[in-house]
Structures are given as structure tokens and as C-alpha cells.
Amino acid sequence: MSAQFMPQFMQYLLSGLTVGAIYALVALGFSIIFNASHVINFAQGEFVMIGGMATVSLSAAEVPLGLAIPLAVAAVVLVGLALEKFAVEPARGASVITLIIITIGASIFLRGLATLVWDKQLHVLKAFSGDAPIAVAGATLLPQSLWVFGITLAIVLALSWFFGRTLLGKAMLATSHNRLAAQLVGINVRHVLLLSYGMSAALGAIAGILIAPISFTTYDVGVMLGLKGFAAAILGGLGSGVGAVVGGIVLGVAESMSAGYVSSAYKDAIALVITLAVLFFMPSGLFGKRGGERV
């Protein structure tokens, strides 16, 4: 037992971190749009799916990965902007619930469209740098996991710089805190909203591309990843960047640990129980704003 303990623990941890980093990226996408509009964008999972599928079909057309990835991300950003421009913006002034229902409709539409543009088959993307497992303290890690860690870290750093150091980022934060006040000091909140959809789409696309070599991609891959990312965002506190990242990692590691130490049958249940417990006992999540602040 004790001789096996460390390598086994490391394996669960590394697996959990890989999946958790993806959840974190999806959760960040939820948070950015939530901040800008208090809308939960249920098409976030579809951004993930289109990112992965577009990269797969580009690389099948012999486009090198270094070019296919930026192209796919750009395509998904366009989809995100179009979603805001043609579905969300025309309904501005509608209640948040209406807007959420619009995003649900958009997600169903995008999934259907994907079955027409591509197909219903599973696809696999070639790993960025090979499939040879790397040994770490008795556990094994795929090189792709390092890409997942590295890129997620880079994105988190870039986002914190953007929101902390740039005028545009600060304008977005200001809008999330108080939309009317932001408008009064001259922030174009419509641009902020458009930008938030674009950024969320990019984050989703990157998550979808990073995970495609590990877990395959297909037209409905976004449903489950979207759900888990949403759970992570709730856990960390909707709207909080740090919360999204921590929520994602905690969720991923908790799933992996419970599959390993308790029973794989309860793995998904444990993720749900954590989410429910958070909703009951600390409704604003680990890092979310307390409700009182928003009065």
C-alpha cells in the first residue's frame, strides 16, 4: 500500500490537473460573459466543440498545426461575435432569462450545424508533440498534458494582465461591477459585451483544441465539457477569474481522486454534490462577490 501510495496519488493528481485545466478554461469563458452581461452563455460548450472540430478538419487538409490552430481560434471568435451581434444584441433589454434561453437555442443550432458542416463521427487530433508518456515520480504523463498546463497558465497570466493593467480590461471590469456607472463615465458597454463574447469564444476554442488529442472531439463533445465548466464556474464563484481557475482544478482533481480512491461509479456524483453543496452553503462560490455588494 505505502509503496504504491505515492505513484498512485501522483497519477490521480496529474490526470485530475489535466482535466481540471480544461474545465478552468471553459469556466473562464462562462465568467467573462457573465461579468459583462450577467448572462450564462450555454453555447460555451459549442465554442469548445467548434475549436476542436475546425482544427481537426484543417489539419486533415494538410494545414500545419501552427497555422491550423490560430485559424480555428479565429473562426470560433467569429462565431462568438456573430452570436452576440445577431442573437444577443437584437434582444438587448430583454430579461437575463430570455438571453440565457437564446444562448441555449444557439447551442442547439450550432450543434446541428456542426453535424451538417462536418459529421457525427468522432475525430482525433494528432498530439502536438508525440504520444510517448513521460514518467513523473512513478506516474505517467502525456506530453499533451504539459501543453495543457503551459497554455492554461499563459492564458491565466495574460488575462490577469489584461484585466489588471490595460484600460480596456479595466473598462470591462467596471462594466461588470456597475453597468450604468460605466456607461456614464463613457465606456461603450456594447463594445464590452461584443468583446466578452469574442474572448469567451477564443478561450473555449483553445480548450477544445488542447483536449482534442487526449479525449477526441465530436459534434456533441461540448455538452459535457460545457456542463463541467459551468459547475467549475459555480464552484469558484461566477464572475471571478481566480474562482474559475481554482474551481476547474478542484473539480478535475476531485473527480480523479474519487474515481481512484472511492469508486468510479460515484465520480460524476461527487462533482455534482460539490456543486450543490456550494450552491447551498456558499451561493456565491469560493471567490465570488458576496450578494450584498450588488445591491
Binding site: Y12, S15, V19, I214, S215, S264, K267
Partner: peptide
């Protein structure tokens, strides 16, 4: 066992391996 839509089964397999 593993759930529908699971993307990683290393935890279950590690258990089997050990």
C-alpha cells in the same frame, strides 16, 4: 466503470494496475 462523456480513465486504470 466510467461515465458517459468521460475524457480520462487513467484513475480507474491505475486502480486496476495496482
Amino acid at each position: 466503470n466510467y461515465g458517459a462523456g468521460d475524457t480520462d480513465m487513467t484513475a480507474q486504470l491505475t486502480k486496476i494496475k495496482n
